[in-house]
């Protein structure tokens, strides 16, 4: 098993109180698997991604639970050990490449620098490797000396992916990597991710608000809501027979261009403020299947047909 996350809790300690951004999340990830993490704003999906890198920003921190990457416990690692692991074993790609790229440095040099920081290579070897990487992500070698502002948004994201794979990590965490891009470019980037998986065996955690995209690309999908993992299923199972009512209602709310005269149904209400989440199940105020118990007690997470589901319907 490449990654094992067990009963993870991440809290933010803000002036207004404690925000339980990730609560009791558990899942495993195999090599060469694409796991989708889907959720709306405030679902905790981005915090979960950062936690796996042990990068949760202050005033947040991992309060309990365990994250094992290749059997090594990440939550108890020193900053020095973490630096060695980041990039080499797990790398991250964010929504806005400009926040991660140095605007004053040529893109090729940025990749070379990343490689030299971790690998025992000469500068010439690193440069050769950087050129190969650029080519692999679909950027011509002659752009090696370009600055980030000379590239389009899609190309910048390709550079980020080249940097992420430069140290051959086993796992890439991509947080809304195509949300700022147009659909045609998004499609090209998704091809790139699937290639990395197919040809290099890289596992990918794809974090997105876009359930249609997740269903197309991911092997399994975790559906998050207000800090909880509501369901974890194979993409096919989730599409055909969602177990958790939130997952089911979300599927009714997304358009499918291949259908005629589709009627979309929104979920009434809106996601809760995590400073004061509702008691019991966090989804119960919006849930069409809510029973009395749902407003009183937190539902347990159960295994149903090899799938994880957190809902009193299966309690």
């Amino acid at each position: 098993m490449l990654l094992e996350v067990d009963d993870l809790h991440v809290h933010y300690f803000t002036k207004r109180g404690v925000v339980r951004a990730v609560e009791g999340v558990s899942f495993n990830l195999d090599e060469a698997e694409i796991l989708g993490i889907v959720g709306e704003s405030g679902s905790g999906k981005s915090t979960l991604g950062l936690a796996i890198m042990n990068l949760v920003p202050s005033p947040g921190r991992i309060v309990s639970g365990s994250i094992r990457l290749n059997g090594k416990e990440i939550t108890r690692m020193s900053e020095k050990e973490l630096r060695r692991i980041r990039g080499k074993e797990v790398a991250m790609v964010f929504q806005d490449p400009m926040t991660s790229l140095d605007p004053l440095m040529r893109i090729g040099d940025q990749i070379v620098e990343t490689i030299l920081a971790h690998e025992d290579m000469t500068k010439e070897e690193a440069k050769r490797r950087a050129m190969e990487l650029l080519e692999e992500v679909g950027i011509s070698r002659d752009r090696f000396n370009d600055y980030p502002h000379q590239l389009s948004g899609g190309m910048r994201q390709r550079v980020m992916i080249a940097m992420a794979v430069s140290l051959n990590p086993k796992l890439i965490i991509a947080d809304e990597p195509t949300t700022a891009l147009d659909v045609i470019v998004q499609d090209q980037i998704m091809d790139l991710f699937t290639e990395l998986r197919d040809e290099h065996g890289v596992a990918i955690i794809l974090i997105s608000h876009d359930l249609a995209l997740e269903l197309e690309v991911s092997d399994r999908i975790g559906v998050m809501y207000a800090g909880w993992l509501m369901e974890l299923s194979k993409a096919e199972d989730l599409m055909k027979r969602p177990l958790n009512p939130y997952a089911r209602e979300l599927l009714k709310a997304i358009p499918n261009v291949e259908l005629e005269d589709q009627k979309l149904i929104s979920i009434p209400g809106s996601p809760p403020d995590l400073h004061s989440p509702p008691p019991g199940c966090r989804f119960h105020p919006r849930c069409p299947d809510a029973k009395p118990v749902c407003s009183r007690e937190e539902p347990p997470t159960k295994v149903v047909d090899g799938r994880l589901v957190k809902c009193w319907l299966y309690g």
């Binding site: 389009s152 899609g154 190309m155 147009d182 659909v183 045609i184 470019v185 998004q186 499609d187 090209q188 699937t194 876009d210 359930l211 249609a212 995209l213 269903l215 197309e216 690309v217 194979k234 993409a235 096919e236 989730l238 599409m239 599927l251 997304i254 499918n256 261009v257 291949e258």
Partner: peptide
């Protein structure tokens, strides 16, 4: 290029080179 909520995906696509 529009994602369709159908698992298994990667329908036959018309691929475009580059960007606008």
């Amino acid at each position: 290029a529009i994602p369709v909520p159908t698992p298994g995906r990667r329908r036959e696509r018309i691929k475009l080179k580059g960007e606008i």
